[in-house]
């Protein structure tokens, strides 16, 4: 069996679990089950779910925020200020939500089945000019942020601005935006860190959720041995991802020092104020809106909170 896997961009920390998965599966099946990972050759990144639905390829990665209407249920994971602290917690809440029947149903519409998540750290800001460490300074700030994050910044007077990830550097350079919110690996790979003078170490406004899915028919057509090899390899691949991303995060402080980027710590009372306007009200709004569309929104939301508590209790 050979599977085609559609991802995008370049090979980076964000895709290492997929590379690892391919390696493990091939190893375990003695080279019988291989994966051919294509970076952008098979589909546009916003259409990976379409490709899965068609059956053009068997496995793909996508991000919920690229097209909220395609995947309403998992947008719960992209709400601002959910309180997720690290990548392990991100994996735990993602897995819990992915297993929810509402998510399974919605993915089944695309003939897709959740395989694993691509946990990303909090989308902290890099910015140009004077560091902004008080809420009042977010007023009028042009920020590159999408979805729920954009809403959170809007709530404190920020101006969310549309630029694509690949244009973020140019937008920063040209003053189209003052700040960009990304995960660390993206600040590195899109070069926004090179224009920055400061980085918010503890704003932790939220993140983007990017699952890896498989085509249901292809998954069902696997022989038992191959399917078992695939399923068993998932935890290992995610563990490898976490380890690898952990190294990147360790290096992050060195990068900041090297590029002479100031690490900004925002005082707790300021953060609390931000959460007050940019957190709960937006959560409530999401719950109301999604419930109106027949989504078990409260249930999904509570599931995230419970999972966080359980995860912390068990550690």
């Amino acid at each position: 069996t050979e599977w085609n896997v559609s991802v995008w961009g370049k090979r980076r920390a964000f895709t290492e679990h997929i590379e690892k998965l391919a390696e493990l599966v091939s190893e375990k099946t003695g080279g019988e089950f291989t994966m051919n990972i294509s970076y952008g050759g098979l589909s546009k990144n916003t259409e990976n779910l379409d490709g899965i639905s068609i059956g053009a390829f068997e496995m793909a990665q996508f991000c919920a925020g690229y097209h909220p209407d395609k995947n309403r249920a998992i947008t719960v994971l992209e709400l601002p200020f959910l309180g997720v602290r690290d990548l392990e917690e991100e994996v735990a809440v993602s897995n819990a939500v992915y297993a929810h029947p509402a998510v399974e149903r919605e993915m089944a519409q695309w003939n897709a089945r959740m395989l694993m998540t691509s946990p990303m750290p909090q989308y902290n800001l890099v910015g140009t000019g004077e560091p902004r460490d008080e809420l009042a300074e977010f007023d009028g700030m042009r920020v590159r942020a999408t979805g729920g994050l954009g809403e959170a910044f809007r709530a404190v007077g920020g101006v969310p601005t549309s630029v694509t990830a690949s244009e973020a550097y140019q937008a920063m350079e040209s003053g189209v935006v003052d700040t960009v919110s990304f995960a660390q690996h993206a600040h590195l790979s899109f070069g926004t860190i090179n224009r920055a003078t400061w980085w918010t170490a503890n704003l932790n406004p939220g993140t983007v959720n990017c699952p890896v899915v498989v085509n249901i028919d292809a998954y069902d057509a696997l022989s038992d041995a191959h399917r078992q090899a695939l399923d068993e390899s998932v935890p290992e691949a995610v563990a490898f991802y976490l380890e690898n991303y952990g190294k990147l995060l360790q290096r992050w402080d060195e990068v900041l020092a090297e590029k002479n980027v100031q690490k900004v710590t925002i005082p707790d009372e300021e953060l609390a104020k931000f959460r007050e306007v940019g957190g709960q009200p937006i959560h409530d709004e999401w719950i109301a809106e999604m419930s109106a569309q027949g989504m078990p929104a409260q249930e999904l939301y509570d599931l995230v909170q419970q999972t966080l508590e359980q995860h912390r209790a068990s550690n």
Binding site: S43, K44, T46, E47, D50, G51, I54, G55, A56, T164, E167
Partner: peptide, 22 residues
């Protein structure tokens, strides 16, 4: 039939997908 369907649908994505670009 499957191959024809998948080919037509894959090709049919391209006009919109590639053109809707900033």
């Amino acid at each position: 039939g499957w191959a024809i369907t998948v080919a037509a649908k894959t090709a049919g994505q391209v006009p919109h997908s590639k053109v809707a670009s900033h």
